[in-house]
Nucleic acid binder design. Structure first.
Length: 531
RNA sequence: GCCCCUAUCGUCUAGAGGCCUAGGACACGGGCUUUUCAAGCCCGGUACAUGGGUUCGAAUCCCGUUAGGGGCACCA
């Protein structure tokens, strides 16, 4: 299938004022998948990472690094932007807004142009911080008395630069006559086409004379975005729907700069097309935030989620290919991706389903891969140590090398694991003597005497078993002894004595890994609990 | 308060006027397997917000209502 647009360029523009957020990662993923999909279909598409660090006070280098590392961990690769090594790639740099003004004078040049053309004005409103934070005070800005003052380069007083919204003046008139400064009844709308929601309209007047820069070299978000998207030749702006209210402002600025115009049907045409993604919601259906729990990609990594599961799960939040497949590789997602299949309403981030999906991915790993993934978590749990790339730990079975020992433990737990962080808790009894209350050994209503006898019987059976020590041999020996009676009477105390847990893999699998000697030792220790 | 967006099982969703007495997945309940916990297999319950149109026919199209969400910074 061929496509009309060539050299499609999309971008993700996070601000480094916090760790990589799940919402940002999902937006990045959709942009990435969009570009990958176009590449597959023959377009020379690019996915750009741009760092919006115009707010020098809140932006931090460590956050920028976290964003880069997080995207890298997820496997969301960008074609242009800052790199992990502190350099840049791509021909449209710099990719940090802070550097763009310094090197290119991007923003001050266009600011001057707007001022000259009378599309913007320097505003000397003596607003205090309190006044600015008071929403009602904004009518003061709509009615800014300084809007007709010419900009004077010698002016030393502080000023900000505002977009001159001629429609706002209609509001002024109404306000002067005693109306509400925010009540609009004009039918001048800015209307744009959205690839997800079709047409979106919003009145022009209520926007007022909004601020576009704090000074010539301190551009503000709405202005900086428009300039950057234009200079970077962005063709599709794919972002969260929380940006819908910003879009009219950006379109008005693009129009003032001569980059956008209204077509004969009244729709704004910019060099790029918009697609606003539904939001990711918390369980109470409000925008996902800290109070809902983990929101940064890094936290999910620490909890032991696999990047493949995260990508698969995030992709299905607000998008779906229309069939009944649930598990998708990154490549399959890229192949199937299309903006038309994006949902319009928000999607709750349901960690229960994420856990299931993560388990699916864990089960698909080879034992070697799983071991490699789990080692850091075993180390963190204090069960093993890594020295010179070799595993060191307490190890109970002299017949197995340590690597084999660990591999077999993880192979045993593989179907049970949902998160890698659970590994330590699940397998600790393979690395240290279990601690438990003697009541754990009781199956149904067995007496102390019954339990002791069961433990002794198990011990006896183990001590006379002939190699090979494997599940099959053990099963035969025990089942021959048990016959038709209740298996739990012998097997529950055995399993509990070996694992010290009320839930664990079966006793034969444990013996197989733990070895006969250690198993017998644990049975003896269990017997001692009964004197 | 004002502007904007949205509306199918608890959750993610399929559904582009008849194939829908609404399909799948997670979760939940039950069963098989089973010494426990998983995994696996089988079965089950639960949804088109509401009122009006349009149409021979509406989950699907239009309007209102209601509900939810987002946004209203010299943050992004």
């Amino acid at each position: 299938m061929s496509i009309a647009i060539k050299n499609s360029r999309v971008r993700i523009a996070p601000s480094p004022t916090g760790f990589l957020h799940i919402g940002t990662a999902r937006t990045a993923l959709f942009n990435y998948l969009f570009a990958q999909n176009y590449k597959i279909r023959g377009d020379n598409a690019s996915f750009i990472l741009r760092i919006e660090d115009t707010d020098q006070e809140r932006s931090k280098k460590e956050y920028e690094e976290d964003i880069l590392n997080g995207l890298n961990w997820l496997g969301i690769e960008w074609d242009e932007g800052p790199t992990l090594h502190g350099t840049e790639k791509g021909n449209f740099g710099p990719y940090n807004q802070s550097k763009r003004e310094r090197k290119l004078k991007s923003y001050s040049n266009y600011l001057t142009q707007l001022l000259k053309n009378g599309k913007a004005f320097a505003c000397f409103c003596p607003s205090s911080k309190e006044e600015i934070e008071d929403k009602n005070n904004d009518k003061f800005h709509i009615l800014c008395p300084y809007k007709d003052m010419a900009y004077n380069p010698d002016e030393t007083r502080q000023f900000v630069i505002r977009y001159k919204n001629t429609y706002a003046e209609k509001l002024e008139e109404r306000f002067k006559k005693g109306g509400d400064a925010f009540k609009t009844n004009e039918d001048d709308y800015v209307t744009f086409q959205d690839l997800v929601r079709n047409k979106i309209s919003s009145p022009k007047d209520i926007l007022g004379h909004f601020v576009i820069a704090k000074s010539f070299d301190e551009p503000l978000y709405n202005f900086a975005v428009v300039v950057d998207d234009y200079e970077m030749k962005i063709t599709h702006v794919i972002r969260g729907e929380d940006h819908i209210p910003n879009t009219p402002k950006q379109l008005l600025l693009a129009e003032a700069l001569g980059w956008a115009q209204v077509d004969e049907t009244g729709v704004f045409q910019a060099p790029w097309t918009y697609a606003h993604l539904p939001l990711i919601l918390g369980t109470d259906r409000s925008k996902l935030s800290k109070r809902h729990g983990a929101t940064s990609v890094n936290e999910y990594k620490t909890l032991g989620y696999l990047p493949e599961a995260m990508v698969n799960f995030m992709a299905l939040l607000g998008w779906n290919p229309g069939d009944e497949q649930e598990i998708f590789s990154k490549e399959e997602l890229a192949k199937e991706f299309s903006l038309e299949k994006i949902q319009k309403s928000g999607a709750v981030f349901d960690t229960v389903k994420l856990d299931w999906m993560n388990g699916e991915y864990i089960r698909r790993k080879s034992v070697e891969e799983l071991t490699a993934l789990c080692i850091p978590f075993l180390e963190k749990a204090g069960l093993i140590k890594i020295q010179n790339a070799k595993i060191k730990s307490q190890h109970y079975n002299p017949k197995l090398k340590i690597d084999e020992y660990v591999n077999r433990i993880l192979a045993l737990e593989q179907p049970r694991l949902k998160k890698l962080s659970e590994t330590g808790e699940r397998v600790n009894f393979f690395f240290q003597e279990p601690e438990y209350d003697k009541e754990l050994l009781r199956w149904k209503n067995m007496s102390d005497e019954d339990i002791k006898k069961a433990l002794q019987k198990a011990e006896k059976l183990l001590s006379v078993i002939n190699p090979p020590i494997d599940k099959k041999t053990l099963e035969k020996a025990f089942f021959d002894e048990i016959g038709d009676s209740d298996k739990g009477k012998l097997l529950w105390p055995l399993r509990a004595a070996l694992s010290g847990k009320k839930a664990s893999p079966g006793p034969f699998e444990i013996v197989e890994i733990l070895g006969i000697e250690e198993s017998i030792k644990r049975l003896e220790q269990a017997e001692q609990k009964f004197g």
